[in-house]
């Protein structure tokens, strides 16, 4: 198999596993409120998924400076969202 396609398949499997983790932690099939830890897991998984898509689907691993910048921006946004979610 083409090594680039093998890498993309591994990344897709990781993204899918993180999505399932998000759905479980976020109570996708439950009406219960999500606690602070659950919210942290949900948003952390989102950040990891965004960085994986940027690095591998969008191939930003070839431009590490840009990847670092997007990673930092996503982390800042997720931290702000987490803070607002805890207040609400």
């Amino acid at each position: 198999m083409n090594p680039d396609i093998r890498r993309l398949l591994i990344v897709w499997a990781a993204l899918s596993a993180l999505t399932v983790t998000t759905m479980i932690s976020g109570g996708a099939t439950s009406p219960a409120r999500v606690g602070a830890l659950g919210l942290a897991v949900v948003l952390a998984a989102a950040v990891i998924k965004v960085v994986l898509v940027l690095a591998h689907y969008l191939d930003l691993r070839q431009a590490p400076g840009w990847l670092s910048g997007f990673r930092l921006a996503t982390l800042v946004l997720a931290a702000a969202l987490y803070g607002l979610a805890l207040i609400g």
Binding site: N2, D4, I5, L8, L9, V11, W12, L15, S16, T19, V20, T22, M23, G26, G27, A28, T29, K49, V53, H56, Y57, D59
Partner: peptide
């Protein structure tokens, strides 16, 4: 419908995989 939202996430991620393979 939170389950539908989750399923749609998997749909888009798989679609993204296919586009990335198209680039290769």
């Amino acid at each position: 419908d939170r389950l539908a939202g989750g399923v749609n996430t998997l749909v888009l991620l798989t679609s993204g995989l296919f586009v990335a393979i198209a680039v290769v």
